[in-house]
Design a protein around this nucleic acid. Structure first.
Lengths: 153, 153
DNA sequence: TTTACTGCAAAATGTTTGCATAAGG
DNA sequence: CCTTATGCAAACATTTTGCAGTAAA
């Protein structure tokens, strides 16, 4: 689960990734972490941090998110909308894509992970170094204003 | 497997989807089908059909691919590169993403489909009408110039 | 003939670049 | 200090839009 976000924690994550802990990087990391369930684009991260940090530039947000993704601090999220989206949740998890609301909802399921881990252990994918996998669920929300919830049958 | 692409076949697909069989739609469908393994963007489809159809406009290719995706004639493919990609292979299949060559390689596996179908039959996702699922495999090609191949262990 | 599609060009959106200045270690 | 990151503005890439003309059924 997600622990509370402290300044110390944010600095530590940056240092652990071998990055300079600049003010801009700290607030970008804070914003993308706070917005993790929304899988935000650079613009959305920028809108979130701008009120408290009016001097930061959108270009820096772009560069910073790209740097974070390269170092593994955040994950790039696949999207259909032709935009670059980021996810501060770097644990193994899947995504549910709703084709009418365009939402991307997290789907975490240990049983599914085990199932797939076992499956890909059996399959050989030649000439490919497999780093991870994720399931994409597609469909539509029944009641767009309400939440999607997962339960066992 | 893929059957050979005939004019009659292309027209039929359009009519079956309730679309007017215009010349432009026929050649866009031909091109995106021929390029299915590449998961092309609008520009790539346009480059492919332009030599034989110099009067077609790029804007029409954008609109046509969007129409095809809405009717289910092609599928929108998730991407990390911030572009809209399309796949004329509408059968259930997964994708392998290589993070250095940026390739998206098809991965078809009946056993995996069965495994996941059984799994999601057990899970209830409340307030969501599940249409389909697909697995994304991420990693890197070992020898970028060579093919990725799948085999059983 | 009627309706829906196409071409064109402009605008909107999203992202990257280059470089002078500023800040972190 | 020295190196790397930032801000800014311009360039670039991609996608959408509006509308007059054209073609399919």
């Amino acid at each position: 689960m997600q622990q509370s976000i402290t300044l110390h924690n944010l600095r530590q994550q940056l240092v652990d990734s071998g990055l300079k802990a600049t003010h801009q990087r700290i607030v970008v990391l804070e914003a993308v972490t706070a917005l993790h369930g929304l899988h935000p684009m650079a613009e959305e991260v920028y809108q979130r941090l701008k009120p408290a940090n009016p001097s930061i530039s959108l270009g820096t947000v772009y560069k910073t998110l790209d740097t974070f993704a390269d170092t593994g601090l955040v994950r790039r999220v696949l999207s259909q909308d032709g935009g670059k989206r980021y996810d501060a949740n770097t644990d193994a998890h899947s995504h549910i894509y709703c084709s009418n609301t365009k939402e991307i909802v997290d789907f975490e399921d240990a049983e599914l992970d085990e199932l797939l881990t076992a499956f890909f252990k059996k399959r050989n994918i030649e000439n490919f170094d497999l780093k991870g996998f994720s399931v994409q669920l597609t469909g539509t929300k029944v009641e767009p204003d309400k939440q999607i919830r997962i339960s066992k049958a």
